[in-house]
Write a protein that binds this DNA or RNA. Structure first.
Lengths: 242, 242
DNA sequence: AAGTGGTCTAGACCACGTA
DNA sequence: ACGTGGTCTAGACCACTTG
């Protein structure tokens, strides 16, 4: 099982792999506690320090969460994580506010060529396309288009389920067992289209901040494509560099 | 000196503080080697593991750089760091290319109210304002305005020194002993002004990605305000979320 | 009181770079 | 050969949570 040979991968890295496998296989679900460091050490026949180093790496990647005196848990998507890690829009004072979401349409379609490529799907695969408008302090601020592979989100958008919560990732996790772990965002300045302009109450051609996001699971499978067009008159996208 | 009392700050955190102090005081300059973990442990009368933990934290913050077999070094600004950590613009294929910079003007002025606030200066403090245009593959792509407190950059912009290198942070470090450690960026979509439009060869009103950056030193003193207006037709701003 | 994570130690050995 | 960082161990004690 675990091997400690000359020139091989460090033990703690192998353990990281084992832990990730047990999480993405669903053995340990989001929010659940995992065995204590001591018990994992016994099970894997390594020292506690080595297990600890592996866990530390996963904590830094937001995969696990430590709670002193209680144990180590698989991270889950709550409103805090949504705001802290997956939402970079703030008002002009730098304060984050989670906007309300209001679904405009939700339809099953065949993926466009570009959508299929970005989600690593076969051409013409069935997808769910959601259009929603997000309001901050009752003011329409972001127009969003969300594309999901229909096969992974069975039942979404049929019947009355077009009412979606604000924190979609929490819903993906609870209803579909899909945990978003990582996202790549591409930002551009674009002109508001006719559609954007009318939903956001702006003139056609107004500059909007376009954020195209591809969100992936722990095992790096893309499961959501999201394009947000944001009115940055009273808000901006905040990023910190080190 | 170091205290290990009940309920006090952990030893390794205290050591982080000591190391940071010795770096920002200039005792260890960027690029220089610091004492080995063993020697620091002896000097501070703690175990090597504790020193190691402190250093690890600084390595993760890009303050120190470890080189196996050689030693631990104070990080410096080279082209790699500029590209990897402080430059998020890529072409449409996701490839980073450091653009050329061409200074348009470089003048000493009094800080505007908003500039003084952002750089934490007294109103009317003397600043240096640099306008430059950045080209990628000979094509003007980014219009930049850079504001620096004159007191910290004595001599810059007088005489023929208006020729600036592409990697400014390397120059700040070498010529002025100022190391940029962290930056906050605020992104917006804006209309190209008359000035932007002519320098970038676009029509007035074209959407541009505005990036307002405040860069700070290790001891969190803001030393540069930079506003970039970027034509995102063939480029985008790339960001990764966890 | 018992169990968990968090800190700290002392020492062994490996991998790498330099001389 | 030597010194450096990198991994791993075994064990002690502290801080926190729960029963």
């Amino acid at each position: 099982m675990l091997s400690i040979n000359k020139g091989s991968i460090p033990l703690y890295q192998q353990i990281v792999g084992l832990l990730v496998a047990r999480i993405s296989s669903g053995e340990w679900l989001p929010g659940e506690i995992i065995p204590s460091e001591i018990n994992l050490a016994k099970e894997l026949d390594v020292s506690q320090g080595t297990v600890r180093k592996a866990i530390t790496e996963l904590v830094e990647n937001n995969v696990l969460t430590r709670k002193q005196g209680r144990g180590t848990f698989v991270s889950n998507h709550n409103i805090d994580r949504a705001l802290f890690h997956f939402f970079h829009i703030t008002d002009n004072n730098g304060h984050k506010v989670l906007p309300d979401g209001e679904v405009i349409s939700c339809r099953h379609k065949k993926a466009l060529k570009s959508e299929a490529r970005k989600l690593q799907l076969e051409p013409d695969t069935e997808i769910i396309k959601i259009e929603r408008i997000r309001k901050i302090a009752s003011k329409p601020t972001i127009a969003e288009t969300i594309v999901l592979p229909a096969s992974r989100f069975k039942g979404l958008g049929k019947g009355k389920s077009c009412e979606l919560p604000n924190t979609l990732y929490e819903m993906y996790e609870k209803q579909f067992g899909i945990t978003i772990h990582r996202a790549e965002e591409q930002l551009r300045a674009v002109k508001a289209s006719q559609h954007d302009a009318s939903t956001l109450g702006l003139e056609v051609g107004t500059p909007l901040l376009s954020i195209e996001r591809i969100a992936t699971t722990l095992d790096n499978i893309p499961v959501e494509l999201r394009i947000s067009r944001c009115n940055t008159t009273n808000h901006y996208y905040q990023n910190t560099l080190f």
